[in-house]
Write a protein that binds this DNA or RNA. Structure first.
Lengths: 340, 340
DNA sequence: TTGTACGCGTTATCAT
DNA sequence: ATGATAACGCGTACAA
């Protein structure tokens, strides 16, 4: 099957290519009759304009790309929907770009910006330890969503929660419930992002309440399992139980891990929360549907997503903005924790 | 910031553009010294080739696109990983393309094929009621994964399970457990795809066992909620309970709905499986971690994903293939159902 | 081994 | 309102 081009359509219609182009792109100065005739032959011959050629020629495009590392993370599910809806609502084109595990999201962004003549970029996930040198190669505005880079004096636009503070809030609550020996399920020891922040919040809460930090109660991810998965939560909890160390509560840095923890406890014949309290983080829908419902930190995902897009457009429109927006998360007390 | 092009790099290096091109694309006939020099200036000036121009010029690209409708569906999560891994393993480029809810996935495919000079296309999700006329506009091989179009004599390459048969298998099992009044949580009444198939399996099982099909036990999705969500399962179950109709078992056409059903039952003071048995479909990881674990139909997602890619490459290589591959799913008996 | 020049399919500028 | 033509940035014959 031969590639049909705009030239051939022009020939078939007995007009010039520019007229066809005008028809395609809804230009005003074209005879409605000619336009209709052209559109009909286009339909008839199934002509589809080549996007590469368009992007090459165009100088701008009203397109906003959302780059996601870890696209199947349930945390992003409804956020993606909101990005899509809000960007379309502004008559912009929404492009969702998946970034592979081994890829550098900034490299992908730089490439995509040129390829698609982007107007703006949203980073979702990943992007933890970037010095920012590379980010300066981006010539369009960008917003980093949900990743709290937290290094002071970041010039970048970010919309996040304060992971340290929220984590501390949770552990505060658990301590207030009377728990003193709180186990922590967390990321790899090398993690310098979310895992580290939530760990820091844990440590701060302990310290403020005069409880000694006990290494033996911290379960680091070290098998190859996906950090935030239920399976990892299960495995870590099992190891914790087998260690013989005593604790009355498990705080997992994600809801999925918390659910895995519950399952491990059930399998060991324990009850939640009667024998052990279990808490998570994120406020995924499943935390409310699990039985017992999981005590968690509900991140305002909708608000974060909406604020991200608003910030994006404000930057595009060069309005004055607050570049560093921090949302407050909500402690949701479920049935998985109890007072001692 | 000026767009830096291959020409400028050539000028900076004092060579012709073709030499720069050769350096970039790892061509053999180039002086290693020249190449290194060029690569250094490229790095120095942060030159990134424009993909649109490349795609425009190239006639082929060793790229395979995976088009997904409903990208945040947890059912696809690990499948995406496998696609990514397998395609990369074959030294092909993997492109994940999200299809918006209101978009026609075939239109997107046609456009993308031209834009990126694709070698092949995988459809994941969506694509229910296509007559196939449009699909014929695709000039590269494509595979439809997990969507059982099931209309006989489809000339398309598909990798699926037999949704009707598997659904029937589940209901068979429930009936064997002694359940006679089995409520069904299903999709919209207008659904002509997965929802319809699983309904059909339900009906067949009832019929074979001489149990009358009772309209009152079928809860159709009709609020605007996402069909396969926990929330929808919750709402439908609640309505079912309030209807006063008697039943001993709930069969939901997805695990998420089943979990929502359990929650609704718990909230109504019922126990699972003592008061009501609950079954799902899909075999998502969460079905095993939920308490009680959900009796479900475990679709072999890994195998389906791997077979999809294998079929894809066989089609590309024009090897003889079995165009219509049907995998068997596994009935996983959890603790959410019991014998009467 | 390297450089020149053309064309990929489209849009935009400038005539008409 | 319409048509010819020059870019857009790159790859690749072809010539050197």
């Amino acid at each position: 099957m031969e590639q049909i081009t705009i030239k051939e359509i022009a020939k078939l219609c007995g007009v010039g290519v520019s007229t066809v182009s005008r028809a395609i792109n809804n230009h005003p100065d074209i005879n409605p009759a000619t336009k209709q005739m052209i559109m009909e032959t286009i339909k008839k011959y199934n002509y589809v304009p080549n996007n590469s050629a368009r992007n090459l020629k165009r100088s701008d495009s009203n397109t906003i790309a959302v780059l996601i590392k870890g696209i199947s993370n349930p945390f992003f599910a409804d956020m993606i929907q909101i990005f899509e809806r809000e960007i379309n609502r502004k008559k912009y084109t929404f492009v969702l770009q998946h970034v592979e595990e081994f890829e550098d999201e900034v490299d992908v962004a730089i490439q995509l910006e040129k390829e698609k003549r982007l107007k703006g970029i949203v980073f979702l996930g990943g992007l933890s330890n970037h010095t920012g040198e590379k980010l300066e190669q981006l010539t369009v505005p960008f917003v980093i969503s949900t990743v709290d880079t937290s290094e002071a004096a970041q010039p970048f636009a970010t919309v996040t929660v304060d992971d340290v503070r929220e984590s501390e809030k949770m552990v505060d609550y658990l301590i207030d419930c009377g728990h003193k020996r709180i186990a922590l399920l967390t990321a790899e020891q090398s993690d310098a992002s979310i895992g580290m922040f939530r760990l820091k919040g844990y440590q701060r809460a302990l310290q403020r309440h005069g409880i000694a930090y006990d290494d033996a109660l911290v379960a680091w991810t070290e098998n190859g399992l996906p950090t935030y998965s239920m399976e990892n939560g299960y495995v870590l909890t099992k190891k914790l139980l087998e260690s013989g160390n005593e604790f009355t509560c498990i705080y997992a840095i994600s809801d999925s891990m918390a659910i895995g923890a519950c399952k491990a406890l059930f399998d060991a014949g324990k009850r939640v929360p009667e024998d052990y309290s279990v808490a998570g983080y994120d406020g995924l829908p499943v935390s409310a549907f699990y039985e017992p419902s999981i005590t968690t930190i509900r991140q305002p995902r909708r608000e974060i997503a909406e604020a991200t897009i608003k910030l994006m457009f404000d930057l595009i429109k060069k309005k004055p903005v607050e570049r560093r927006q921090i949302f407050e998360a909500e402690l949701v007390v479920g049935k998985s924790t109890r007072e001692l």
